[in-house]
């Protein structure tokens, strides 16, 4: 039996508004590392908020460890740990006081909580700063403490909502390694991100979400195979603003499956990069555009997203 069962989940914030989450269904098995990948505004945070009982679904159901999120929210909350996107910490309290407070809110106390606080401080390399107010911490240190708070009580299901947003590469690496370690330790993880590389690196299975809909679900291999043995050709032009014209012109080529332009780059989904390259350059020249760089990418989640939506993931 899956640890998390999401069935036909819908969330609409206003009666006449669009569905922020639109008929999403998936399972997460115990010990699995599952990522929800999608651009900003795709509905990842709304989905995780419903799974964590923060939001009520408009329709559909979520079960965590056998407990329905709407019927038994307290039972669900006892088995989950959440690391929100925001740094949900009290700046005027020390790291230790924050852990103490959040631990007590999880129903912990006494020697058990003291032991956990020491353990989590050590785990996040914050033992030396335990008595310092969080307001004096760097962004990376705050992120680590944010993570430590989510881990208090060693929950069965950890949900991390874009935990690497707006932090330095070193802290990002630290968090990714930690999540991997956690997953290897048998903890079930639900991870949301808009970074394709993170989802690729961490996940056992990935759900791709866009405009509230789950558009693809599977392992990395399953997803890349679903778009065939295609490659991605990424061009940068010397001229600004010519990308859209080039993409439009290339869409008519039979060997080019999809073409899009974004941030000065032209992204092409092709059956064979090598075979298509000459005609692409010729088309660019014909439009008076010159190609500055060419990059050939193996099939990846970006390819999958482009294939499924016609847009780059960062659009």
């Amino acid at each position: 039996m899956p640890l998390v069962e999401v069935r036909n989940l819908v969330k609409r914030y206003t009666p006449d508004g669009p569905n922020a989450v639109d008929d999403v269904s998936f399972d997460i098995h115990a010990g699995e590392m599952f990522s929800l990948l999608g651009p900003n505004g795709a509905g990842k945070t709304t989905a995780i908020s419903m799974i964590s009982t923060l939001l009520s679904p408009t329709s559909g159901a979520v079960t965590v460890d056998g407990h329905n999120t709407q019927k038994s929210p307290m039972d669900v909350r006892r088995v989950i740990g959440v690391v929100p996107q925001e740094l949900a910490l009290y700046d005027d309290m020390t790291a230790r006081e924050n852990l103490q407070f959040w631990g007590e809110m999880r129903g912990m106390g006494g020697a058990e909580l003291k032991r956990e606080i020491v353990e989590k401080l050590a785990l996040t390399d914050l033992t030396d700063r335990a008595k310092d107010r969080v307001g004096t911490f760097s962004g990376g240190m705050k992120r680590r403490l944010n993570l430590a708070v989510g881990l208090l009580g060693n929950p069965k299901l950890m949900m991390l909502d874009e935990p690497t947003v707006a932090i330095d590469p070193q802290s990002r690496r630290y968090i990714l390694d930690w999540v991997k370690k956690m997953s290897q330790g048998g903890v079930t993880v639900l991870y949301t991100t808009h970074y394709m590389e993170e989802a690729q690196e961490l996940s056992d299975r990935i759900g791709i979400i866009d405009h509230g809909k789950l558009i693809a679900l599977g392992t990395l291999d399953e997803l890349t195979q679903s778009v065939g043995q295609h490659e991605t050709l990424v061009l940068t032009l010397t001229q600004e603003g010519g990308g859209a014209d080039l993409a439009a012109a290339l869409e008519t080529h039979t060997d080019i499956l999809q073409a899009g332009a974004d941030n000065g780059e032209v992204v092409l989904n092709v059956t064979s990069a090598e075979a298509s390259l000459a005609s692409v350059i010729a088309t660019a020249s014909g439009l008076g555009l010159s190609v500055r760089t060419i990059e050939i990418r193996e099939p990846n989640l970006e390819t999958v997203f482009l294939h499924l939506t016609g847009r780059a993931l960062r659009d």
Binding site: L54, M74, R77, R78, A88, M105, G107
Partner: peptide
């Protein structure tokens, strides 16, 4: 706004 209230609301606390 800071996110601590939502975090509180998903602890097992009514």
């Amino acid at each position: 706004r800071l996110g601590t209230l939502p975090r509180l609301l998903i602890t097992p606390t009514p």
